[in-house]
């Protein structure tokens, strides 16, 4: 595999967990809810995914369980933020801390034995095409799933009535409630969906990317996903670009270490974090651009007046 192919495919793969988590959070934020706990939900998903495959169950089931675990974790946030009207910042942070602890607890016995990683899918004919085959058709199924979900989410949010309702709730829960939509119930569903997506992102890390369990293995990817939603200015397509940007940064850093660049590994490892800050600054300076798609009721507690 030549260097270009390595960097290209590496970027796509490194971006995948971010795409899952950030797309999920985007839908959640579109409904006016801010869940800061992605890091915790991803870790829970990652640990549960490894756990299920350790027990000897097939990988698809492990991935499914990871998504369910992520959703269950998000439910804790949902109950606090939606039923008990807690400050959403605080509830999200609590989930981030709690999820980190729970995942470490689940993963305590795993050691660092690698599991059977998710294998790239061989698509007849397509994978064999010279040049394009290895570039575009040599990924594991979850990568394709992330693209399918991207398509579905964009279609759902902007082309369906249900998507319109979700966005309306994000703009004005009072108006949506007055028309008769069950605001809280819909927000619950959306939060669960976001949790499942974060769980998938975590499972991708521990089942396909690494593939083993390491405590705190997300190393900030949940928080970077949050930043991606801001970077994307709440538009799904831009989430993809943002995730590729960060994926590329990760791969360049790994390639740099492999090529023996004369920089300490810590300097290279800090690049994605520095890039996150730089990108956030650039995007946040333009208030009008951000306000365009910003869900107005974001992070504001809502309780229907009877």
């Amino acid at each position: 595999m030549d260097l270009f192919t390595a960097i290209f495919t590496g970027t796509i793969i490194a971006a995948t967990p971010l795409i899952f988590a950030a797309l999920g959070e985007l839908v959640v934020e579109k409904s006016g809810v801010l869940n800061l706990g992605i890091e915790g939900m991803m870790l829970v998903g990652a640990a549960v995914g490894v756990w299920v495959s350790y027990v000897g169950l097939p990988l698809p089931l492990a991935i499914l369980c990871a998504a369910v675990a992520g959703a269950l974790a998000s439910l804790v946030f949902g109950v606090l933020a939606l039923t008990f009207l807690t400050n959403q910042y605080a509830a999200g942070l609590a989930l981030a801390i709690f999820g980190t602890g729970v995942s470490a607890y689940i993963g305590k016995g795993f050691g660092s034995t690698p599991i059977d990683a998710l294998k790239p899918l061989v698509i007849p004919f397509l994978t064999d095409i010279p040049v394009l085959g290895p570039l575009l058709f040599n990924y594991d199924p979850l990568v394709y799933l992330s693209f399918i979900l991207f398509g579905l989410i964009s279609w759902f949010l902007y082309k369906t009535k249900a998507g319109l309702i979700v966005r309306t709730i994000g703009e004005s829960p009072d108006a949506a409630h007055a028309i008769g939509y069950p605001v809280i119930k819909i927000r619950y569903l959306v939060v669960l969906f976001g949790g499942a997506m974060a769980g998938l992102g975590g499972a991708y890390l521990s089942i396909a990317y690494t593939p083993l369990w390491v405590e705190n293995m997300t190393a900030g990817k949940g928080w970077i996903s949050l930043a991606l939603v801001v970077f994307a200015a709440w538009r799904p397509a831009r989430v993809l670009f943002g995730a590729w940007l960060f994926g590329g940064m990760t791969i360049l850093q790994l390639q740099g270490q492999a090529l023996g660049l004369a920089l300490p590994s810590e300097v290279l490892s800090s690049l994605p974090y520095i890039a996150t800050i730089v990108v956030l600054v650039i995007i946040s300076r333009n208030r009008q651009f951000l306000a365009l798609n910003f869900p107005t009721s974001l992070a504001k507690p809502f309780r229907p007046a009877r």
Partner: peptide
């Protein structure tokens, strides 16, 4: 990890 589970749980119940 029991410590951070406790921490998270305490914060949850407090917020609730």
């Amino acid at each position: 990890a029991v410590t951070s589970i406790f921490q998270g749980m305490l914060l949850f119940f407090l917020l609730a």
